[in-house]
Simulated scan of single mutants.
Amino acid sequence: MLSYLANLSEWALKSGHDSDLFKAMNVFSYITFRAICAAATAFLISIICGSWVIRKLISLKFGQPVRSKEEVHKLYELHGAKKGTPTMGGLLIIGSIVISVALWAKPENPYVWIVMFSTLFLGAIGFYDDWLKVTKKSSAGISSRQKFLLQCILAAAFAAFFLFSPDPKVREMATKLYIPFMKDPLIFSIPILIPIFYLLVIVGTSNAVNLTDGLDGLATGCTATVASAYALLAYLAGNVKAAEYLQIPFVTYSGELTIVCAALLGACLGFLWWNAHPAKVFMGDTGSLAIGGMLGAVAICAKQELLLVIVGGVFVIEAMSVILQVASFKLTGKRIIKMSPLHHHFELSGWKENTVIVRFWIMSVICALLGLATLKLR
């Protein structure tokens, strides 16, 4: 692991070995340098391996099922040509992230492990969901009840990691909830509320990204924006001086999550090379659940959970459009928009697919900037 060079250079300089070689190696101790390298590594892996992964998925006949013409007549006319496009491309994203993080993040950091565990766990759920879809040639995969149960298990493991950590600082931070625009945190006085809250964050984020993944490159581009914002947030939370200046919580171990977010950014940009309209591969639930869960896990570790509602505003709007649509139809028998998630409403309103995608990307950038602006409003 290249991250060991950082530990080696730090040890050498502390021990009085001030040779030019060790001084040069000291650059590996900088989080910013390793984050750039992580993003570049993940991007290059996605670009270089993308063609091979696509060919492999095609050879395995892992084509994306499309809902039948009888289910959604107008949408079938718009997306019918996409039937058979290889799915499970999320394996490329996850693989790029794992390799990049293994190379550039410090392995002794516990937050790196818990975030990567969450990513792989949700990626496995998504893979099983995609597997059922492609083998049954149906748009229906794992049941929502089974998926929710597995996500509950992850949230419980996540809460246990924090509540039973041998580090008292980690246990203490788990009981605090920081609200944007407020300096002082709320305290979870009832321990059972912590895993419930983590469940809401992880399930909400992973499913919101999953719902957004309906157009070529839409979820990929929005995830890249949110990952960029949280790379900065994680870096600031892990820097004592920056955290004190901005009056945000200083979180031990948070700094290394900058490398994780940078790897996610690079992987998304590399995947977008193949996923841009017209897409040659879809990420599937394998990718959307994994990267959504990763964003939620990073937000929890950096103690910026609620800020994710602003930074990931596009994901929130997409999820809310589904919830409100279903609630309205069940209560009144009427739909409030033509079709949910919201991106389909605009498609059926006459917007071209590329128009919807780019405009949602623009909104994602604006949401990220608004979220970062809250750092000075406390």
Rank of each mutant, 00 (worst) to 15 (best):
K241I: 02
V311A: 12
H73V: 13
R67P: 08
N275R: 07
P185Q: 07
V72K: 14
V356S: 10
K330V: 09
A155T: 01
G266I: 02
S364Q: 13
Y178V: 02
L78W: 00
G16K: 00
A24R: 00
A174V: 02
V209P: 06
S15E: 14
L200V: 14
I366P: 06
V226W: 10
A208L: 10
V356N: 03
G204H: 02
K137P: 00
L348S: 09
L257I: 02
L295E: 07
R55Q: 15
A234I: 01
F181Y: 13
V209D: 03
L91F: 11
L375K: 03
C367P: 01
S340I: 09
E347A: 06
G90C: 10
I93R: 10
G63A: 05
I45Q: 11
A263R: 01
D213V: 02
A160R: 11
K169M: 13
A237V: 02
C268W: 10
L200D: 02
V240N: 05
K338T: 12
R335S: 07
E318V: 09
W11E: 15
E353G: 11
L218E: 07
L149M: 11
L186C: 11
A302L: 00
R359Y: 12
G80W: 04
L186Q: 14
M339N: 02
K82E: 05
C152T: 14
G89D: 08
D213F: 01
K280D: 10
L5D: 04
C222V: 15
F346I: 03
K183I: 11
Y253E: 04
H79V: 06
W131T: 11
V314E: 08
R55H: 13
T223L: 14
I99S: 10
P185K: 05
T41F: 09
Y230I: 05
F181M: 09
E256N: 07
M339H: 11
T374R: 04
R145Q: 08
A231V: 01
P86D: 04
A159R: 04
L150V: 06
L132I: 12
T220Y: 03
A319R: 05
V209W: 10
L306V: 08
L289T: 02
G287Q: 09
L308M: 09
T220C: 09
A174W: 05
V112Q: 01
T175L: 13
M320A: 15
H73S: 12
T85M: 01
F43G: 04
S96M: 13
P107S: 15
L132C: 07
S68Y: 03
N7T: 15
E172I: 00
L13Y: 01
I196V: 14
F346W: 15
K56E: 09
F329N: 03
S15M: 08
A160V: 05
F158A: 01
V356Y: 03
V98H: 03
Y235T: 00
G16A: 07
A102D: 12
I93P: 08
